[in-house]
Simulated assay, not measured.
Amino acid sequence: MTPSERHGLWYGVAGVAIFALTLPMTRLAVGTADAPLMSGVFVAMGRAAVAAALSALFLLVTRAPWPRAGEWRALAITAGGVVFGFPLLSSIAMRHVEAVHASVIIGVLPLATALVGALLHRQRPSPAFWAFAALGSVLVVAFALLRSGAALRLHGADLLLLGAVACAAVGYGWGARLSQRMPAEHVICWALVLALPATLPLAFWSRPAMPLPASAWWAFGYVAVFSMWIGFFAWYRGLALGGTVRVSQVQLLQPFLSMVFAVPLLHERLDALSLGFALAVIATVFMGRRMPVARVPRLPVLSPAVESR
């Protein structure tokens, strides 16, 4: 592993640690079906609008250059995944499921991100890499079933969470691709600013109509400043330095970090089963990161003179 890849993994760990608080904080902000607080639309669009304001200030202070013509499309796809898709679907779902349950469903995100990254970045992971990635995902799913004791069927909230996974994987892949051409922190900032004409009106339209507890606003502030903004500074830089396919596997730690954070925030219990599966998943991450990931060479483009021979 090169020094750049090693630094990328550490940036990825920092990003995952920040993202791990997203679901518990979202749960605090939206409340439950019996005691609703903020709407999922407001949490998703409001946090994006706040982060966009911070992004505009950051871009202005740092005198960031405007994206080139060919980069706006990739920024739009990135925004569709991580500014609209994941926050909106996950925020709506969090009113109907506990943070622990949502965390383990989101645990399939590393495999989805690796698939998108392999396609976008022309990377060819070894069979051993895919084996450890699949094993980590299987462990996460097995933990979800053992923890919940539910039947093998998906509810509406589960479908929303799986849709959020797909959106996040696409947004991570395209954002990582852009991070190879512009500073990682500029990627999320421009994506948020690009989305502001839609997120700001939606946030205003869905704003709470009644007083809310301070805890809900503190939770909203976290997902706006950290989950939607600062976390991406580290995450996209990690993907750019270490490679999307390899660094994506660090996300396998996110469900278990979320559970650790949920204990004091949501008064949930962290038992031996959770710790055992956490150690097993950490082992798959450790072994998977040591497996080779090759880049598929591009075919040479022949000149017309050569092609005519």
Rank of each mutant, 00 (worst) to 15 (best):
A53P: 01
A33V: 14
A51I: 06
A35D: 14
M45F: 15
M38S: 02
F19A: 11
W66Q: 14
R68S: 11
A17C: 15
V83E: 07
A44M: 08
A74H: 03
F86P: 00
L21V: 07
A76I: 07
M38Q: 03
T22G: 02
A49V: 07
G85S: 04
D34R: 13
P67Q: 13
A56I: 14
T78W: 02
R73M: 12
Y11T: 01
P36T: 11
F86C: 03
A53T: 06
A53N: 02
V50I: 15
G81K: 03
V13I: 14
V82F: 08
G31E: 07
T22R: 06
A56F: 15
L21G: 05
F19Y: 13
A20L: 06
D34A: 14
V13A: 15
T26A: 12
F84K: 04
A48R: 00
A14Y: 04
R73L: 14
P24D: 13
R63F: 10
Y11M: 13
A20S: 14
G70M: 03
W10H: 13
V61F: 03
L60D: 01
F58H: 14
F84I: 13
F19D: 03
E71L: 11
T32R: 10
L57S: 14
R73W: 07
G40R: 00
T26S: 13
F19N: 07
V16M: 05
G40M: 06
G46W: 03
I77N: 00
T62M: 06
V61H: 03
G70F: 01
T26E: 11
V30I: 11
A76M: 10
T32A: 12
Y11V: 03
A44D: 09
V82G: 00
G80C: 10
W10P: 04
M45K: 05
L54K: 12
G70E: 08
T22S: 13
D34W: 06
A52C: 12
T62W: 04
D34K: 11
G80Q: 08
V43H: 02
T78V: 03
V83K: 07
F84C: 03
A20M: 09
G85E: 05
V13R: 05
A76W: 02
R68Y: 01
V41G: 04
P24L: 09
R47F: 11
G46C: 12
F19M: 13
A17T: 14
T78P: 01
R27N: 07
V30D: 03
I77A: 10
T22Y: 15
A17Q: 05
L75Q: 00
R47H: 11
W10G: 04
L59I: 12
L23K: 01
Y11N: 08
R47M: 13
A17K: 06
W66C: 12
V13L: 15
I77D: 00
L54F: 15
V50E: 01
L59R: 02
G70R: 12
A52W: 00
G80M: 05
L28S: 04
T22D: 14
V16G: 01
V13S: 09
L75N: 01
R68I: 00
F86M: 13
W72K: 06
V30A: 09
G81P: 00
S39Y: 05
L28M: 15
A48C: 09
A35H: 14
G15Y: 09
T78E: 02
R27E: 09
T32D: 11
A79M: 07
A20I: 08
Y11P: 02
W72V: 09
F42W: 10
E71P: 01
L21P: 00
A49R: 01
W10F: 15
A76F: 05
A74M: 09
A44V: 10
V13M: 13
